[in-house]
Amino acid sequence: MSHTLSVGVVGAGRVGAVLAAGLRAAGHPVVAAAGESDASRRRAAELLPGVPLRKPSDVSRAADLLLLTVPDDMLPNVVRVLADSGAIREGQVVAHTSGRHGLAVLAPAAAVGARVIALHPAMTFTGTAVDIDRLRGCVFGLTAGEGERELAAGLVADLGGTANWVPEEMRTLYHAGLAHGANHLVTLVSEAMGLLAAAGVDDPAGTLRPLLDAALDNALAHGDAALTGPIVRGDVKTVAAHLKDISANAPDTLPSYVAMAWATLDRSVTDGRLLPIQGQKIATVLSAYGERRVLPSRVEHTGSMERTERSEQA
């Protein structure tokens, strides 16, 4: 355990309440929390029993470690108000959990002498006790100055997580990668379940689960090499049939299917697994359902040569 710190959390939402509970389990006393919604109050009662709910400024004044777990767009104003009101003090540790923001957003706190840390858990939260166990092995995107790096790493270790250092200027790109992978995955899976339901499948989730488990494991292990399906096989008629039936039965899903089909097509041609002539046929089909695009000319030559050599060797 790192040096014991009294903890205050402003924003007792799904992330804040869970992290505070995790730190409490590691021996850091949680002295106060702030949360205005009924959900936040219920969450605090369940995960932080006995911890008083107070105004953000009072929480800040009571804590050695101030956790700011408010939404990204609210964070700059919260930091500014707390700093200007004198609620943040010299030597206090102020950490936020935003993926997008780094240390710049904490400049008002740093200006009064606080030790500032960006500490983002790369995990999706339910806001329940199950999340506390999930913190073990969770990767935290950390940004801190030289004087705070050991402290930041120690807090992550106390939570059972793994530290991953993210440069200040790369925080937004780091967060975009997580959001694209996790948030958009939820949308994609929900739409896929909708298509199966429309097709009369009784248990869309159960039908998809083994397929998605295998696809995710393969993608994380092998990247683009894990791609399967009609596009990478060059099955033009199958892609056309998909588009026709989705358009007729689930038109709201058509834009995302087309967008992901384009992305899959580009990557399949780029790595040489799909002949450019096949790629162009699929591109023509996709263009009928949206903006017409042209495959990269550089890829059409190199990909064709590589694919031809592979075919001859086979």
Score class of each variant (00 low, 15 high):
Ser2Thr: 15
Gly11Ile: 05
Ala12Lys: 00
Ala12Ser: 01
Val15Asn: 00
Gly16Cys: 02
Val18Asp: 08
Ala21Thr: 04
Gly22Val: 02
Arg24Met: 06
Ala32Lys: 02
Ala34Asp: 04
Ala34Leu: 05
Gly35Phe: 10
Gly35Leu: 03
Ser37Val: 08
Ser37Tyr: 08
Ala45Gln: 12
Val51Phe: 12
Pro52Gln: 06
Leu53His: 03
Ser57Tyr: 06
Asp58Arg: 00
Ser60Ala: 15
Leu67His: 07
Thr69Gln: 01
Asp72Trp: 15
Asp72Gln: 13
Met74Asn: 10
Leu75Gly: 14
Val78Arg: 13
Val79Phe: 09
Gln92Ala: 15
Gln92Asp: 14
His96Trp: 05
Leu106Arg: 15
Leu106Ile: 09
Pro108Glu: 13
Gly113Arg: 07
Ala114His: 03
Arg115Gln: 09
His120Met: 10
Ala129Gly: 10
Ala129Lys: 08
Ala129Gln: 12
Arg136Asn: 10
Val139Pro: 11
Phe140Gly: 08
Thr143Met: 03
Glu148Ser: 14
Ala152Asp: 12
Leu155Met: 01
Ala157Val: 06
Leu159Cys: 03
Gly160Ser: 08
Gly161Pro: 02
Gly161Trp: 00
Trp165Ala: 10
Glu168Thr: 14
Leu188Glu: 01
Ser190Asp: 14
Ala192Pro: 14
Ala192Gln: 02
Gly194Leu: 12
Leu196Gln: 11
Ala199Val: 10
Asp202Lys: 15
Leu208Glu: 06
Leu211Tyr: 10
Leu212Arg: 07
Ala215Val: 10
Leu216Tyr: 10
Ala219His: 01
Leu220Cys: 11
His222Asn: 13
Gly223Glu: 02
Asp224Trp: 07
Asp224Ile: 06
Ala225Lys: 02
Leu227Ala: 03
Pro230Asn: 06
Val232Asp: 01
His242Tyr: 10
His242Gly: 01
Ile246Val: 13
Asn249Tyr: 11
Ala250Phe: 01
Pro251Ala: 08
Thr253Phe: 06
Thr253Asp: 00
Leu254Ala: 07
Ala259Asn: 12
Ala263Lys: 10
Asp266Leu: 11
Ser268Gly: 02
Gly272Phe: 00
Gly279Val: 01
Thr284Ser: 09
Leu286Met: 06
Leu286His: 04
Arg292Ser: 05
Thr302Lys: 00
Thr302Ser: 00
Ser304Arg: 07
Ala314His: 02
Ala314Leu: 05
